Simulated assay, not measured.
Amino acid sequence: MKKPVNSLDKRFKIAHKEALIGIILVIINFIIWYGFAYGLGSANVKDYTYVWGLPAWFFYSCILGSIIMIILVIVTVKYIFQDIPFEVNEEENK
């Protein structure tokens, strides 16, 4: 006998939650990138400030933003995501 459609397997609930967290991380990355790239980068080129020889908007949006996102993903995977078994337990399905 099949389970009703409304009772999702626990694995799918965890996967949906983790997918939502992944989407939130992508949105955070876009906000950081867009904010610095178009916030600092919309000035006149003569008025740019530079960090390590790169325009500040590029350094903050691409270099520092990437480092921040790498740290956020590592923390998320280490402390929020869960290990789940991929095998279907026949006893649980009965």
Rank of each mutant, 00 (worst) to 15 (best):
M1A: 14
K2N: 09
K3Y: 08
K3E: 15
P4Q: 07
P4I: 08
V5N: 13
V5R: 13
N6W: 12
N6M: 10
N6E: 13
D9Y: 08
K10F: 08
R11Q: 11
I14P: 04
A15R: 15
H16E: 12
H16K: 13
K17D: 13
E18H: 15
A19N: 13
L20P: 05
L20A: 10
I21K: 00
I23A: 08
I24L: 06
I24A: 07
N29G: 11
N29E: 12
I31G: 02
I31Y: 00
I31D: 04
I31Q: 01
I32Q: 01
I32H: 04
W33G: 11
W33P: 01
G35Y: 03
G35I: 04
F36R: 00
F36T: 09
Y38F: 14
Y38V: 06
Y38C: 02
Y38T: 09
G39R: 00
G39W: 02
G39H: 03
L40H: 02
L40N: 07
L40S: 06
S42I: 03
A43T: 15
N44E: 13
V45H: 04
V45M: 02
D47Q: 14
D47F: 03
Y48S: 06
Y48L: 02
T49D: 07
Y50F: 14
Y50L: 02
W52R: 08
G53N: 04
L54Q: 12
L54D: 03
P55F: 00
W57N: 10
F58V: 08
F59Q: 01
F59W: 10
Y60L: 15
C62P: 01
C62H: 13
C62I: 08
I63C: 04
G65N: 07
S66L: 05
S66H: 07
I68W: 05
M69R: 04
I70D: 05
I71T: 11
V73E: 09
T76E: 10
V77R: 14
V77W: 04
K78R: 10
K78V: 08
Y79R: 07
Y79I: 01
Y79G: 04
I80L: 15
I80D: 02
F81T: 13
F81I: 08
Q82Y: 03
I84F: 07
I84N: 05
P85R: 09
P85W: 03
P85T: 06
E87H: 13
V88G: 00
N89A: 10
E92L: 13
K94V: 14
